[in-house]
Simulated scan of single mutants.
Amino acid sequence: MAYNEQLANRVRELLIDREDVIEKEMFSGICFMVDHKMCVCVSGEELLCRIGKEKVTEELENGNCRNMMNNGRLMKDYVYVEDIAINNQKKLKYWVDLCLAFNPLAKSAKKKNT
């Protein structure tokens, strides 16, 4: 699974003080689960952010991100962030903070019975 390890390390730096972070491979990259919920992912060269429908609308108007589509379906709480919007640690922190702010409101994924 190829993803930008340098970007993943930058995200790790921002989450290092949290005890509720688990890394999991998904979305063709590495996802950072917070409180057992997908929070932010490094997918290929991009950042996938779960920020909630309202913030998605706001950030799409600001530019530097695009909707996430999954099998032709719009994922309303997620955006992919362009590299120019995360090219320094202050900008990356902005996006990670948006993800962390939405995380308590996010629904957990349904557990699969195996």
Results as ranks from 00 to 15, higher is better:
A2F: 13
Y3V: 00
L7M: 05
N9E: 15
R12T: 01
E13T: 14
L15M: 08
L15E: 02
I16K: 15
D17S: 15
R18D: 00
V21Y: 06
I22Q: 11
E23H: 08
E23T: 12
E23Q: 07
K24S: 14
F27T: 07
F27I: 07
F27C: 06
V34T: 00
M38Q: 11
M38F: 14
M38K: 11
C39F: 04
C39P: 06
C39K: 01
V40E: 00
S43W: 05
G44Y: 00
G44K: 05
E45L: 12
E45M: 10
L47R: 03
L47H: 02
E54N: 13
V56I: 04
E59F: 07
L60Q: 08
N62M: 10
G63Y: 03
N64L: 13
C65K: 01
R66C: 09
R66F: 09
M68Q: 10
M69F: 13
N70C: 14
N70L: 15
G72I: 06
R73D: 09
L74I: 09
L74E: 10
L74H: 14
M75E: 07
M75Y: 04
D77G: 05
D77E: 14
Y78F: 14
V79S: 03
Y80C: 05
Y80A: 05
A85H: 01
A85M: 00
I86H: 00
I86L: 04
N87P: 03
N87G: 10
K91Y: 02
K91S: 08
K91G: 00
K91D: 10
L92G: 02
K93W: 05
Y94M: 06
Y94D: 03
Y94Q: 06
W95R: 00
V96G: 02
V96A: 01
D97L: 06
D97S: 10
C99H: 02
L100T: 06
F102E: 05
L105E: 15
L105C: 12
S108T: 12
A109S: 13
K110G: 10
K110E: 14
K110P: 06
K110I: 11
K112E: 14
T114Q: 15
